[in-house]
Simulated scan of single mutants.
Amino acid sequence: MNDQSPLSLQPGQILARGVCRFLAEMNFAALEEYVPERGRRVDVMAMGPKGELWVIECKSSRADFMADAKWQGYLDWADRFFWAVDANFPADILPEGTGLIMADGYGAEIIRMGPETKLAGARRSAVTRKFARDAARRLQRWRDPQV
């Protein structure tokens, strides 16, 4: 597996790594830099043990957050939405009604649970199938880069 040191990762990628480790402890499967549809890329998409779908956007600075004008478009792809930030981030600027995860490169903790907005059945089915197929393709490419 690709075991990149924290020194070779961007700040948002470091946060994503800690978030994914935390999610794994909660029995969630997570994919980083996931594309639910063309033109959208979420930092972390996770599927829980009961099929729940979460989107987590990792923000490493105030400027990073202020430059993100598309986050509301991610709400249609998950049952819950979270921001993941580090301890130095000014969390008071994050929108109310969204979840908050405090993270570093090694782990994370939910500070505020994102409100649940269940996906419609057809959307859930489509997202779940795409998530599974994309995860399998990533694993196949890792095992055989020629694919």
Rank of each mutant, 00 (worst) to 15 (best):
G48I: 12
G51R: 09
G51D: 13
G51S: 06
G51M: 05
G51C: 01
G51E: 09
L53K: 12
L53F: 04
W54E: 06
W54D: 01
W54M: 08
V55C: 09
I56H: 09
C58K: 05
K59R: 14
S60K: 07
S60M: 03
S60N: 06
S60A: 14
R62L: 09
R62T: 10
R62K: 13
A63M: 08
A63R: 10
D64H: 01
F65Q: 03
M66G: 01
M66Q: 11
M66V: 14
A67V: 04
A67Y: 00
A69W: 13
K70L: 04
K70M: 07
Q72C: 02
Q72K: 13
Q72N: 12
G73D: 07
G73T: 00
Y74V: 01
Y74C: 04
Y74T: 02
L75V: 02
L75W: 09
L75M: 10
D76A: 15
D76H: 14
W77I: 00
W77D: 06
W77H: 14
A78S: 13
A78L: 09
A78I: 08
D79N: 09
D79Y: 12
D79K: 05
D79A: 04
R80C: 02
F81I: 07
F81S: 00
F81A: 03
F82G: 08
A84R: 04
A84Q: 00
A84N: 05
V85A: 02
V85G: 09
D86N: 15
A87S: 15
A87C: 03
A87H: 01
N88I: 07
F89L: 02
F89T: 00
F89Y: 05
F89N: 05
P90K: 00
P90Y: 02
P90S: 04
D92C: 07
D92G: 12
D92Y: 12
I93N: 07
I93C: 05
L94T: 03
E96H: 11
E96V: 12
E96K: 14
E96M: 06
E96C: 02
L100S: 07
L100F: 00
I101P: 00
M102S: 14
M102Y: 06
A103K: 00
A103D: 04
D104W: 11
D104C: 11
G105R: 11
G105V: 11
G105H: 11
G105E: 01
Y106M: 11
Y106A: 09
Y106F: 12
Y106G: 11
G107L: 10
A108K: 09
E109A: 13
E109F: 05
E109G: 10
I111P: 08
I111L: 14
R112P: 01
M113N: 14
G114S: 01
G114R: 05
P115T: 11
E116W: 15
E116M: 13
T117V: 11
T117S: 08
K118C: 03
K118V: 10
K118L: 13
K118A: 12
L119N: 08
A120K: 14
A120I: 08
A120R: 08
G121W: 07
G121K: 15
G121Y: 13
A122P: 03
A122E: 15
R123W: 02
R123D: 06
R123M: 12
R123C: 03
R123I: 04
